[in-house]
Computed example of a mutant assay.
Amino acid sequence: MILYLHGFCSSPASWKSRLMAEAMAVRGLGGRFLCPQLSPVPAQAVADLGRLIEAAEVPPTLVGSSLGGHYASHLAAKYGLAAVLINPATVNALDPAKFIGEHANFHSGERFVFTAEHAGQLAAQVARPDPARTWLLLETGDEVLDYRQAQAFWFGCRQSVFEGGDHSFTRFPGMIPQILEFAGI
């Protein structure tokens, strides 16, 4: 099972989520892919995901992009799961003041406010999962997050660092077969 965790201001309609869902469906595994809409409140997002993980028939592999990578790291550590982190948010290295304020979901347009309390919730979730079960995918051209912060924080984990690209992780379509292999699918 793949549990895909989208990024900040994103949704299950993101291109990576849709591509992963299509790849799973082509393999006849559409029912083993899940990408829920995450709450903009970090504590709520993690609580909701924890319930999904606990209810899963088989332990899922977490695939998280950007803020979803942060959540995947936290949940992989908590539940002993495998995780693929795609240009993940290295929360302990970010200035939360840059994110405090009103935002809109990229796909639905739904507006929400990210507060200092929410930033504190993220900081409390910082966790490094088992390096043997964690794969970090980075592009050096990420214009939103400094890939070197993730490289340093997840030192010791399997890392694939690609020159160029951007925050969306442009190489994602070509990486799907390897991600599914990593997940044992």
Results as ranks from 00 to 15, higher is better:
Y71G: 04
A72H: 05
S73L: 02
S73C: 11
S73M: 02
S73R: 01
S73K: 00
H74Q: 10
H74P: 01
L75S: 08
L75R: 05
A76G: 09
A76H: 01
A76W: 01
A77P: 06
K78Q: 15
K78N: 02
Y79Q: 06
G80I: 08
G80F: 02
G80W: 03
G80A: 12
L81M: 04
L81E: 03
L85N: 05
I86R: 01
N87L: 05
P88L: 05
P88S: 12
A89C: 14
A89G: 06
T90G: 04
V91Q: 08
A93D: 08
D95E: 14
A97E: 15
A97C: 03
K98I: 02
K98R: 15
F99W: 15
G101C: 10
G101T: 11
E102W: 09
E102Q: 14
E102I: 04
A104E: 14
N105H: 10
F106P: 00
S108D: 10
G109H: 10
G109Q: 04
G109V: 04
E110C: 00
R111L: 02
F112G: 02
F112N: 05
F112R: 05
A116C: 05
A116I: 03
A116Y: 02
E117N: 10
E117S: 13
E117V: 14
H118Q: 14
H118I: 00
H118V: 00
H118E: 07
H118D: 15
H118M: 15
A119M: 09
A119Q: 10
A119E: 10
Q121F: 11
L122A: 04
A123Q: 15
A123F: 12
A124N: 13
Q125Y: 04
Q125H: 13
V126L: 11
A127V: 00
A127C: 11
A127G: 01
A127M: 12
R128Q: 12
R128H: 11
R128Y: 02
R128N: 06
P129Y: 04
P131G: 09
A132V: 01
R133C: 07
R133H: 13
T134D: 07
T134A: 06
L136F: 03
L136M: 09
L136C: 09
